[in-house]
Design a protein around this nucleic acid. Sequence first.
DNA 1: AAAAAACGTTGACATAGGTCAACGTTTTCT
DNA 2: AGAAAACGTTGACCTATGTCAACGTTTTTT
Lengths: 194, 194
Amino acid sequence: MIDTLIEHINSKISKPLTENEIQLLSEIFQPKKLRKHQYLIQSGDVCKHAAFVVKGALKKYTIDQTGKENILELYIENWWAGDKESFMIGTPTPYYIDAYDDTEILIITKEDFTNKLTKLPFITELNNVLTERQSFQLMKRLHSSQTLTAEQKLEQLQDTYPEFFQRFPQHIIASYLGMTKETLSRIRKASTRK
Amino acid sequence: MIDTLIEHINSKISKPLTENEIQLLSEIFQPKKLRKHQYLIQSGDVCKHAAFVVKGALKKYTIDQTGKENILELYIENWWAGDKESFMIGTPTPYYIDAYDDTEILIITKEDFTNKLTKLPFITELNNVLTERQSFQLMKRLHSSQTLTAEQKLEQLQDTYPEFFQRFPQHIIASYLGMTKETLSRIRKASTRK
DNA sequence: AAAAAACGTTGACATAGGTCAACGTTTTCT
DNA sequence: AGAAAACGTTGACCTATGTCAACGTTTTTT
């Protein structure tokens, strides 16, 4: 399992991990299984782990007064799941994250992260790269959210993350796109007609 | 002018800048004035400078087929203006940034940034802190964009950045919030009535 | 001082997308 | 195997917000 993580890290940083670093990572990261529907975090928790997805799928969402889920992020293999703000700053998270499928993750505690990893240059670099990429993507999603029609949002997602359509049902995709499942259903019908 | 920048940096990093570092920053950052309406960058440009706002106000936006401006970010004193993705990766920016008022900025070229600053630990830390904060804010804005009513978006902005209402006219605020100026006008009327 | 531009408001109307309810199909659970 | 839950689709209707146009006020330009 740890191999997947090593490979992921190597693909993001400028020089490959040394044997020592790999050894350290293997000791610190713990494998964990989540059953379908099991929570990784719940609203109100402080996020005490960072989690790397080895296998499976998760969703991050809020629940409003009427009980409706608003999905903010979807995670599949090779993604990092968690609320980074809560993890870094220690504030309670407003989000739920749960497994959409049976899922295998590698987790690291906040303490190990701070005490054993923070000093390593490759972690700083990795963290930088990931945070930056996250921020670029969020900027694009915000712009799309404010300017595109429902149909354009769907097209854009099909271009950006086509794999989501294999992994998640339509009502999940709809929520991620900020629309209802009915709207998504109607749009799909309309655009296959073309 | 450079004092404002020094103070800003000191407020974000863990140990104060040394005399040498301050000296270096003074040499590298160049003051520049922008007239009201003057562009800092235009769509298609590669963003070759990072800019720190000392005085004034700017907006970052796209222009759609019908000529409508969609404002993504507003910048005032002590903010960094620019397209970080374009600056970092060298891709052409899709955005325009222009001065909403007469504005004074401090700019640094990509070359100086890469060659003279990248190695300094405080720059890495600053960059981290700013990128992370940006990413947290974008997550919240995306969530708001997808879940709040126009009225709730207004209230939230009044709580988060009350200073914007002193610095920008309503049609700018409306665009930043992803609504039309007419909607904003009607909402304000309705909520003062309460 | 006059002209022009920018700004905010209001009304009438249009529309994209939401809501609610029903139904058939597929998947999951026991 | 049978029951229950999850899923996707469709219709009827609703509503928040957008569009367009007009107008008065304020600010900027000349």
